[in-house]
């Protein structure tokens, strides 16, 4: 991936984040105080994760002459997002007040993740000149979809068992 492409994706993500955090419309989801606390903590963990792995990436790239693919940077960002969402889902702070954890989302993510996994495994088998990190991004996307899908399904199952209604 070229530096220009990375910059473009960075700007896109920045615009998305600004829209997300300045959205005061009706679609804004309400969270209670515990959920706010969990969400803030998850952002902190995500931030630490991304920065630690980026530091490791820069360290390995500069000191060991490993020539790591820039795909790894995007994979690290996806891993950071995985940490944030996984923590929020496990602690029931991903969806807002009164929102049920829709198992259909979980199954959908799991199925799409497994379909992607087949594609990634095929690419691994067919490619002969893979460099380190060439497939990092697509592999991390598979991990993201499968892990978050499973987390949503688990959370929905746990909520149904725990609820005394």
């Amino acid at each position: 991936m070229e530096l220009g492409d990375l910059f473009f994706y960075g700007v896109l993500v920045a615009i998305f984040v600004v829209i997300l955090f300045t959205n005061k419309g009706k679609t804004k989801v309400k969270y209670d105080e515990r959920q706010e606390m969990i969400r803030n903590r998850s952002y902190k963990y995500g931030w630490y994760t991304v920065n630690l792995f980026l530091l490791a990436y820069v360290f390995v790239n500069n000191n060991f002459n490993a020539k790591l693919d820039t795909n790894i940077i995007l994979a690290i960002v996806i891993f950071g997002a995985l940490v944030v969402t996984f923590y929020q889902i496990l602690k029931s702070a991903y969806f807002g007040i009164g929102k049920k954890y829709p198992a259909i989302f979980g199954w959908l993510m799991l199925i799409v993740g497994l379909m992607n996994a087949v594609v990634v495994i095929q690419q691994f088998r067919l490619s002969h000149d893979l460099e380190i990190g060439n497939m990092a991004c697509s592999t991390m996307l598979v991990v993201f979809l499968v892990v978050d899908g499973l987390a949503i399904i688990y959370r929905q199952y746990h909520d149904r068992r725990e609820s005394d209604k």
């Binding site: 969270y31 105080e33 515990r34 007040i97 009164g98 909520d159 209604k165």
Partner: peptide, 12 residues
């Protein structure tokens, strides 16, 4: 029911 009365999530 209590969660709805207080305005928080059931999990809280």
């Amino acid at each position: 029911d209590l969660a709805q009365l207080v305005g928080v999530s059931r999990q809280t």
